[in-house]
């Protein structure tokens, strides 16, 4: 059965996913079996994302994409699906690799941040920010400089705290063809899959990037409860799946050991190189700014 490498796991499925194929090296990774079955008749699902409905049924998380497939996430290693009537596997593969994978992440992550992550000398650095803040292009610039790209768009956090790897090819593509831009229209910078990291990595720091009315990039450390206030807006929360407060508490529990910085960059200028310089400086000396 074909297998794909994503989130540090080996996904085994007959669906043709837009993910890197799992090489032999991935044999040791924990498998996730995505099996086609005939699921029992659909039950009413309480939550909606557009026309997609979802909810918990008998301990499993069920995601129903009416024109593609119904997925049942039993646990972190087992997913089953039933194709919709008259649907082939293409739409199911498309929704699985995006939306449904985001649901599955909840089985392995304590929290999921909207952002990008790259690996520095002391661990993974997460860049969070609003759409258009430049986090994807900033991460791509760091990847271009040789830092392994771990995640783009969604950054799963686990205990430790550690950053779980995402799917490096999904948006910052290897060939620059498949959605290489961020969803916010950031410039395209191709990242070869060899530059991606596929194993979990210690969380070394978080940078909140924002485009503001300023002349030059400015970096400020956040302290105390301000750390949570800076990062919390970028938690990805799914109604009915994520308990907002418990997820916040888990995030807060990770932050005391992690430096958090606010990096404001000028609105109009392309300052990705300067911003990348600042993040690289933090990678080398995470507490440098705090000691001033």
């Amino acid at each position: 059965m074909p297998a794909y490498l994503a989130f540090g796991r080996r996904f085994e499925t007959e669906l043709t996913l837009p993910w890197p194929p799992a090489a032999r090296l991935a044999d040791a990774l924990p498998p996730v079996r995505v099996s086609r079955v005939d699921l029992a008749d659909a039950v009413a699902l309480p939550f909606a994302l557009g026309a997609v409905r979802y909810g918990k049924v008998n301990g499993s998380l069920v995601v129903d994409v009416p024109w593609a497939a119904r997925f049942e996430i039993a646990d972190q290693s087992s997913i089953r699906y039933t194709l919709a009537a008259d649907a082939d596997g293409r739409a199911a593969a498309e929704y699985f690799s995006g939306l449904v994978a985001g649901f599955w992440l909840r089985t392995v992550a304590e929290a999921v941040l909207h952002g990008s992550a790259v690996e520095g000398p002391g661990g993974a650095w997460i860049i969070v920010g609003a759409s258009g803040s430049g986090k994807s292009s900033g991460a791509a610039e760091l990847a271009r400089r040789g830092h392994a790209l771990m995640c783009d768009d969604s950054v799963p956090l686990a205990a430790g705290p550690t950053v779980l790897p995402g799917v490096a090819m999904s948006r910052l593509g290897a060939d620059g063809q498949d959605g290489a831009a961020g969803s916010d229209g950031a410039d395209k910078v191709a990242v070869p899959p060899s530059a991606a990291r596929h194993e979990p990595c210690r969380l070394a720091g978080i940078v909140r990037l924002a485009a503001v009315d300023a002349d030059r990039p400015e970096l400020r450390p956040a302290r105390g409860a301000a750390r949570l206030a800076l990062v919390a807006p970028f938690l990805q929360l799914l109604e009915g799946v994520d308990d907002r407060i418990m997820t916040l508490a888990k995030l807060a529990g990770m932050l005391p050991s992690v430096p958090v910085y606010a990096l404001d960059r000028p609105l109009a200028d392309d300052t990705r190189a300067e911003c990348a310089d600042l993040v690289e400086r933090l990678m080398e000396a995470p507490d440098l700014e705090e000691e001033r």
């Binding site: 302290r223 105390g224 409860a225 949570l228 916040l248 807060a252 529990g253 932050l255 005391p256």
Partner: peptide, 12 residues
């Protein structure tokens, strides 16, 4: 839920 962040607290 009370979370300590340095010498400050977040009350959730």
């Amino acid at each position: 839920v009370v979370s300590r962040l340095d010498d400050e607290l977040a009350l959730l």
